[in-house]
């Protein structure tokens, strides 16, 4: 257990000790992580897409996405040598390559924000249901069970209708609300196991408040697990978002990979042989989802010595 065996350094400042400890732990974590090629591969893909998302506005000026500005282009033009049209044009004569690049933005933003929201709700509910006994803990546990059984697409549709709009923030909220129960389950299990440890008993005996116990002892112990789990949740959320866009339930003005597939399907790209509007968006989704999955799996192994030992 690293925290217990951190090197003793003869510096009086507690802050400095903590800082040093953290440095050592981080270095060890990076070393452990980099032993896994698949994890590094995932990081590589992710960095590539982050770079694409960040640079999209500079590489692909916004007019490329504006249907009015592309009225003179032909529809479903096949890939050509000109950089902007390496991937041909879409059903409105726009550059597919530009759309692919811009499409990385909502996928990453929604995926990460909704997962963070799910992480916060899931962690709170999970810790509460694991820590508190009796009615409160029980109800938190039941709440998790209940949200687990809600059918995803109908729930999202009705939630969207209730919230009234189809903006990207509504999508984040809707996906966040529907994605937390898995995390809560996991956190609850981990909380239970942490609670069984002697030092929590000690903290209880010493009269630490519930809040102090949860924040000081339980939270640090569940956090690694939560982070690994959240990374995996991002993958699922991105898939869910793609599904919603494909069903036409996202803002149609938002350029997203799922929305591109919706347009491709609605305008018969497959039957017209316009593979460049059908295959690349799917591959982008797969790549990003795969990246988060690989990173998440590696984090799990690295952060859980039992899995990593062999």
């Amino acid at each position: 257990m690293t925290t217990d065996t951190a090197p003793t350094v003869a510096i009086p400042s507690v802050r400095a000790i903590r800082w040093k400890r953290r440095q050592v732990a981080t270095a060890r974590f990076i070393r452990a992580f980099s032993r896994y090629r698949s994890g590094l591969f995932g990081v590589g893909i992710l960095l590539f897409f982050v770079a694409v998302a960040v640079s999209a506005p500079y590489v692909f000026p916004e007019y490329l996405l504006d249907p009015n500005a592309n009225l003179s282009n032909s529809v479903y033009a096949p890939p050509s040598a000109e950089f902007y049209y390496w991937m041909g044009t879409d059903d409105l004569g726009r550059s597919v390559l530009a759309e692919l690049a811009w499409g990385a933005r909502p996928s990453l933003v929604v995926g990460i924000l909704a997962s963070i929201m799910a992480m916060i709700i899931g962690t709170l509910v999970g810790i509460a249901s694991g820590h508190f006994r009796g009615f409160f803990g029980g109800s938190m546990e039941r709440l998790t069970d209940w949200f687990l059984v809600l059918p995803f697409v109908p729930t999202v549709i009705v939630l969207q209708a209730v919230l009234g709009e189809t903006t990207i923030w509504i999508t984040v909220i809707v996906l966040g609300i529907t994605s937390w129960p898995g995390t809560a389950r996991l956190v609850r299990a981990q909380t239970l196991s942490v609670e069984a440890r002697p030092y929590i008993e000690r903290a209880k005996v010493l009269g630490n408040s519930d809040w102090a116990q949860m924040v000081r002892h339980i939270l640090p112990n569940v956090m690694p697990l939560v982070i690994a789990n959240t990374t995996l949740t991002v993958a699922i959320v991105i898939l869910s978002m793609t599904t919603l866009a494909f069903l036409g339930l996202l803002d149609p003005n938002l350029i997203s990979w799922g929305g591109m597939l919706d347009s491709a399907d609605a305008t018969g790209a497959a039957l017209q042989g316009a593979w460049w509007f059908l295959i690349p968006p799917g591959l982008c989704v797969i790549a990003v989802v795969l990246a988060f999955t690989l990173i998440g799996r590696t984090l799990e192994v690295v952060l859980n010595p039992r899995l990593g030992s062999n």
């Binding site: 257990m1 925290t3 898995g182 389950r185 196991s193 942490v194 010595p305």
Partner: peptide
């Protein structure tokens, strides 16, 4: 980053494809 104590969590729950959907009765 602190490392985690071994044990406690079911491995099924740890699986990436699972997200803790497995009920622990």
């Amino acid at each position: 980053m602190a490392q985690q104590e071994p044990g406690g969590v079911s491995d099924a729950a740890l699986d990436p494809t699972e997200f803790g959907r497995v009920q622990r009765p």
